[in-house]
Write a protein that binds this DNA or RNA. Structure first.
Lengths: 164, 164
DNA sequence: TATGAAATTCCCTAAAC
DNA sequence: GTTTAGGGAATTTCATA
């Protein structure tokens, strides 16, 4: 549906890989790592930003924050109405408690990862997000004991020959 | 298990909130937003980094990348052996295809979000990650059609009075 | 102990090549 | 693509409450 109007070469792939792990590296350091001058790196990153391919965020360690209750919820919609799904999208995107939301293939329509401050807070949020509008047929709550891994690394190309 | 050795005041909470949305803001802009000088902001952020509370990463838009196949997998372990779980943790953390991995309460032990370049690539990765060691009793694959929301915002304190 | 303002250093950015 | 030059931001220093 959304074709990439963005041609990426080998330098781009390696830069994006590095940036996904540490967005704090200086342009000089990135340049050294991929074999490019700092200006060249700067121009490429500016291009990513311009096309909204890349945005920089801070990631916090939930374990260091104390009162964070993470929950995974599977959601089944009442009907396959486009209008209902659009409304659900908007609600998920607007809710600050929603960390991630994925549309799924299969019986469950959505997977939602929520971050709240307690189980009581989760219940409150879930009832507001899932029950208020009557679009949701049912949802299944799974408490998250621990975050084993938390990242957003996405492959920018198919795997194959591994380069040093 | 891990108590926070990090005392956070109101300024910290507001800074962390802003940084989670946009890690590119200048120290001056952040200072203006919370009512602190740039130096004070810089010192606080340095403290977050030192305690590994905060790290900065680039987030890519999967929709702009073309061949990204996202999958959510639920995993059930063979036994409740600490050794097996430790091995599973290590494998998840080491695998570049694993975006997120959560330990769950309930029948399923883990939720794993994987990013691969095709369904074939996913199958390959899943067999290597889940079947090779014989620790996994079964796993349930759910293809992700679309990423509705992708963020890592975590609440740094309980909600309540909303401040302007 | 943590602040704000000034001084310094370093990096990002935009030229020109 | 690189090198160069300039402005701006991050970091350090310092006086202070």
């Amino acid at each position: 549906m959304a074709a990439t109007p963005l041609q990426l070469d080998d330098f781009d792939h390696r830069l994006l890989e590095l940036l996904q792990r540490d967005a704090d590296a200086t342009l000089t350091a990135l340049g050294d790592a991929v074999g490019l001058s700092a200006s060249a790196v700067q121009r490429r990153i500016a291009r990513y930003r311009k096309h909204h391919l890349l945005r920089q965020v801070a990631v916090l360690d939930p374990a260091l924050l104390g009162n964070v209750t993470l929950v995974a919820a599977l959601v089944m919609m009442e009907r396959e109405s486009a209008k209902q799904h659009a409304a659900f999208y908007a609600r998920m995107r607007a809710a600050p408690e929603v960390q991630q939301c994925y549309a799924l293939a299969g019986d469950w329509d959505y997977l939602v990862i929520l971050a709240t401050t307690s189980v009581a807070h989760y219940r409150e949020v879930a009832e507001k997000l899932f029950l208020d509008e009557g679009y949701v047929r049912r949802y299944d709550t799974r408490l998250i004991f621990e975050t084993v891994k938390l990242g957003m690394q996405v492959p920018t190309r198919a795997p194959g020959r591994r380069r040093k």
